[in-house]
Design a binder for these strands. Structure first.
Lengths: 241, 241
DNA sequence: GCAAAAGTGTTAATGCTACACCCATGT
DNA sequence: ACATGGGTGTAGCATTAACACTTTTGC
């Protein structure tokens, strides 16, 4: 049998197929607190609960393409750091029908986060409270600005928890922290981002030296302005080369 | 609209749905060399090429259940260390139709690997040659026992490469190495596994001390036998508690 | 000058590397 | 006795943590 004959004989309807969706964990650090963007559900199931923005994967687009399309359509964003997180496939995770969801997480600087909130009014900011430390993992609690706990839909608390865990794990051997900062930033801002994600205080001189020794930072010569104390030097993330 | 009305109105046929498969990267370290189990394809597409064992996800089983079912049916294995790896979703990764594949990787001790080879005669052993080092990543070359390169089907070289990368990354902060060893093992055997996965030689005293200081090892008091030199102490992996 | 935060030097502790050496077993 | 690999002690090196200190700005 030739490949061509085989393709004609292959029956794609032989297996009952699930739907496949992509959900986005859009994260940032806002004023020293880890945060994510959520949407309040306006339909069943989980009407009124809070969910991650997401949508179905079209038959003619890759998973990565679907993630970028949703990033543009749901959050009006281009060019964010984005990476596949995990695929959630419990049978009853969606009561409507079988839906397998591929979770992606994206990292945005605070300013872009604010712009997304303005451009997409159905998005809401949620602070993330991480009730575990280190490599423990588990779900995460989302809180609104006035301190109320936002009940989450589906298995989205697990997705948020896994995103936080991944972020913590990659923090000090990869450049993910720079995706959460503007192009130019102070060492203090970089340390604040690290501390917010890790949930711990870090030693200032040790942190400075570690970052500078790594060779990822490039001093711009410019300085922060507006503060009533010594202005800090602004650095830039040195991208390969 | 009530939840019940919504469910009745929801039309699961509204989107054209992809097929979803699970592919298994079954790995071990055989005589000091990383290895995987492959099957030679007997159908189009990629007739004659080598592929990871896999199969479609049924509509009424979770992804994890599908992985375990395939582990039992394809490799005749129960109780291996298994974990989800990554989801591959390029549009044309399978020429038949749209198939999204969730890759899992499983770790087996050498003896279980040999047993799987015996119980499932369509499986073949492939040594893995890793042409990159550290955190670089990329595809991997599979070689048969007599040194020939085995051409791989689909994107399975990428799956093997990602599995090796994940294994390397988790090696020294998690207990994955113990999944590649029998219940009782010598420190030398543990070091051999580390060296095979990392592709480097390690310092013996430093390795010993690091492992023992970690508290994951429990001496059994028993000793290896059969060698013409001083017998080594056998240790056991201390599982939580 | 003072407050506040940036930025630096110095020391102590820790962990890792390398090397040398001793130990126990089968032949 | 000897060859072989298991197992241990010690000294040197590098990396990191902690603390104290100096510097620079706005008010």
């Amino acid at each position: 049998m030739s490949e061509r004959e085989f393709l004609q004989a292959y029956d794609p309807a032989a297996y009952e197929r699930p739907s496949v969706a992509v959900d986005l964990v859009l994260m940032s650090v806002i004023d020293g607190v880890p945060a994510a963007l959520l949407m309040q559900r306006e339909d069943h199931p989980y009407l009124g609960r809070w969910a991650l923005p997401g949508g179905f994967v079209a038959i003619d687009e890759s998973l990565d393409e679907a993630a970028h399309r949703l990033l543009a359509s749901k959050a009006r964003m281009q060019d964010a750091y984005i990476e596949q997180l995990y695929t959630f496939g419990a049978v009853a995770r969606d009561p409507r029908t079988r839906i397998i969801s591929v979770a992606y997480f994206a990292l945005l600087p605070q300013a872009d986060f604010a712009a997304a909130l303005k451009a997409a009014p159905d998005l809401a900011l949620a602070d993330l409270v991480v009730p575990w430390s280190g490599e423990a993992g588990g779900p995460v609690v989302a809180r609104s600005a006035d301190g109320e706990t936002l009940p989450l839909a589906f298995d989205h608390a697990d997705m948020l928890g896994l995103a936080m865990l991944r972020l913590r794990g990659k923090l000090d051997y990869s450049g993910v922290a720079f995706a959460l900062l503007p192009e130019r930033f102070t060492l203090r801002a970089l340390q604040d981002v690290h501390e917010a994600i890790l949930g711990t205080k870090l030693n200032k001189p040790a942190f400075r030296r570690r970052m500078l020794d790594r060779g990822w930072l490039e001093p711009t010569g410019e300085r922060e302005s507006g503060a009533s104390f010594r202005p800090a030097e602004l650095y830039r993330h040195r991208t390969g080369g």
